[in-house]
């Protein structure tokens, strides 16, 4: 019983990490109408930013978190400005190929600068806590709490603030949003900034679990979060959160059962197939509205 509860908590916390990344995917998809396949690599850049602070400068992990978020936010804005904005209105295939190009570019740059060998990024020295006889990793609780707060905050921003309304408006009808006075380019840049900041946090939380990074650090979490976004219904913000949590919990349960654990990734990806068979638009995805 206590093992199940601790697996659930680990699953929710891993799910929270996937949700943070999936939110970036889904927001960019909804608002900029593109699949940003370089999103996972933003996580990787964040992890190296943390490495520079704690690994090379032996400075505080708190500073590392701050720097990682700042670097990723700036990088998200920069990539959008230089790589994607010039392609606004271009066929989506061109944009997709560009995103894949940006992904390889970031990985190659990391490899040139830091080498291909994985490096240690020691963050905090986490202990276990004992809650009612159940032993739980502190980092899981922290990750879970921060993810929950961030997701609620994001939903609040989207629903209740001017910039949030502008984002919904741009995602629904770019032209009509412009007629309201919304600057579409700026709104898309803000979306990339938010998504990249969330990705930086996700990278930090991943380092809590395993304090090692490499140029391909973002690839697997990136693709899993993309799957989470699709399961939840790409474009839907609550969908990304739900998809991420489902993925995290299933993955942790698979990992906790000895004869299933080698297949954890396969199990995670097979959820996608099942969900898409039952609901092709994902759990909270909308049916494509008919255009007149």
């Amino acid at each position: 019983m206590s093992e199940i509860i601790s697996t659930i908590i680990n699953g929710l916390s891993q799910g929270g990490v996937y949700a943070l990344i999936a939110l970036g995917y889904t927001m960019v998809y909804g608002i900029a109408k593109m699949l940003n396949f370089a999103h996972g690599d933003i996580i990787m850049v964040g992890s190296y930013a943390a490495f520079v602070v704690v690994g090379m400068m032996s400075s505080s992990p708190f500073l590392a978190i701050f720097i990682a978020v700042v670097v990723c936010t700036a990088l998200g804005i920069l990539v959008e400005r230089l790589a994607y904005r010039p392609l606004r209105g271009a066929p989506s295939l061109s944009v997709l190929i560009t995103a894949i190009g940006v992904s390889y570019l970031l990985q190659s740059l990391a490899q040139i600068i830091f080498g291909a060998t994985p490096v240690m990024v020691p963050m905090f020295d986490f202990k276990f806590v004992d809650i009612g006889g159940i032993s739980i990793k502190i980092q899981s609780l922290i990750t879970l709490a921060v993810c929950a707060v961030v997701i609620v905050l994001l939903l609040f921003v989207i629903k209740k603030t001017k910039v949030g309304r502008a984002m919904v408006a741009v995602s629904e009808d770019r032209g009509a949003a412009q007629l309201m006075g919304v600057n579409v380019n700026r709104t898309i840049a803000i979306t990339f900034a938010i998504g990249s900041a969330l990705a930086a946090l996700a990278g930090i939380f991943s380092l809590f679990v395993s304090p090692v990074t490499s140029p391909t650090f973002g690839a697997l979490p990136g693709i899993k979060a993309f799957v989470a976004a699709v399961i939840g219904g790409i474009g839907s913000i609550p969908g990304a959160a739900i998809g991420g949590i489902i993925l995290g919990v299933v993955e942790q349960f698979a990992l906790s059962v000895p004869f299933l654990s080698p297949y954890a990734d396969a199990i995670v990806f097979s959820i996608l197939i099942v969900v898409l068979l039952v609901r092709p638009t994902g759990i909270l995805g909308k049916k494509q509205r008919e255009k007149v």
């Binding site: 001017k162 309304r165 502008a166 919904v168 408006a169 629904e172 009808d173 309201m180």
Partner: peptide, 15 residues
């Protein structure tokens, strides 16, 4: 904006 309330649409009008 169909996914937004009447009130939110009016707020966007005053963007």
């Amino acid at each position: 904006f169909k996914d937004l309330s009447v009130y939110d649409n009016l707020c966007l009008g005053a963007y």
